[in-house]
């Protein structure tokens, strides 16, 4: 019994220590951000790795999600004779929830895991260590540009997800199922508010971007410098990011849309 309490306490302390390390780490990363203004080319390279290479999976998933959403909603709405509000339903679900959340989960799987593996491997092969010996701070030179690129990419990717998803919904709803094109767009416009829905959705994606990239770069930097350590860290990035995105989505949704 006492042993069980002791083990629980130890585990709790380990989690706290990790959280502390992660916080100290991110503060060092943030301290390294101003330097990037003078060397923005470092960020551009990472925007390519983190953002551009994620476009394909985001666009394809968004198209599929939008089409399925439209198809499913259509048959339910038709039972109530209100299939005109299809556009509104698709747009609101995408803009408020599915866009930021699904884009976040995909981003964690595509870009987050790649970031962790890359930084972890650089650590395992002593590249970070040798950089230190060349009097270059790897947190500023390697981690900070990747962090900034992740935070900048996420809202853009989430916006793309929502926009492409709505187009997918339009293709199926209007093109295939025969909903009136005018009603589709006008009811959407009438009921989607720019500030309450779109800006809040973007705000969500910014928060997700910070959290996912933070987890990814920290896990890479904190990984055990062995092949097994790096693969475990990569797995943890995906799992922890997914949990964090879902948990924060709940909190943010309650804060943003709970008041009505």
């Amino acid at each position: 019994m006492i042993e069980a309490i002791r083990l629980t306490g130890e585990a709790a302390l380990r989690v706290l220590a990790r959280l502390g390390r992660a916080t100290l780490f991110i503060s060092q990363v943030i301290a390294g951000l101003p330097m990037l203004l003078r060397r923005f080319s470092l960020v551009v390279t990472q925007l390519y790795e983190v953002g551009v290479l994620s476009i394909a999976i985001i666009v394809i998933s968004a198209l599929a999600v939008g089409m399925v959403l439209s198809l499913q909603m259509f048959y339910t709405l038709r039972d109530f004779g209100s299939e005109q509000i299809l556009g509104q339903v698709v747009a609101l679900s995408l803009v408020r929830e599915l866009g930021p959340v699904l884009a976040g989960l995909l981003f964690a799987g595509r870009a987050g895991s790649a970031l962790t593996a890359e930084i972890g491997l650089m650590k395992a092969t002593e590249q970070l260590s040798s950089m230190e010996m060349m009097a270059v701070d790897p947190i500023k030179r390697v981690v900070a540009p990747r962090f900034l690129a992740g935070v900048l990419s996420m809202p853009l990717l989430a916006a793309m997800f929502s926009a492409v998803g709505i187009l997918g919904g339009y293709l199926v709803g209007v093109g295939l199922l025969g909903v009136d094109s005018g009603a589709f767009w006008s009811l959407m416009q009438a009921n989607v508010d720019f500030y309450d829905d779109i800006l809040n959705g973007i705000l969500k994606s910014v928060v997700f971007g910070i959290i996912i990239t933070w987890i990814a770069v920290f896990e890479g930097y904190d990984a055990k410098p062995t092949a097994e350590g790096v693969s475990r860290a990569t797995m943890r990035t995906v799992v922890h990011s997914a949990f964090a995105v879902l948990a924060f989505d709940f909190i943010l949704t309650a804060l943003m849309f709970g008041g009505r």
Binding site: L121, M122, T125, E126, Q127, S129, S130, E132, M133, M134, A135, V136
Partner: peptide, 28 residues
Amino acid sequence: AARKSMGLLFQASALFTGLSVFDNVAFP
């Protein structure tokens, strides 16, 4: 500053895998 006047050849070489030989040497 002190490290700038030191060089260390790592046992594992520790070349930056993402950069060419030229860029590796040009890095410092």
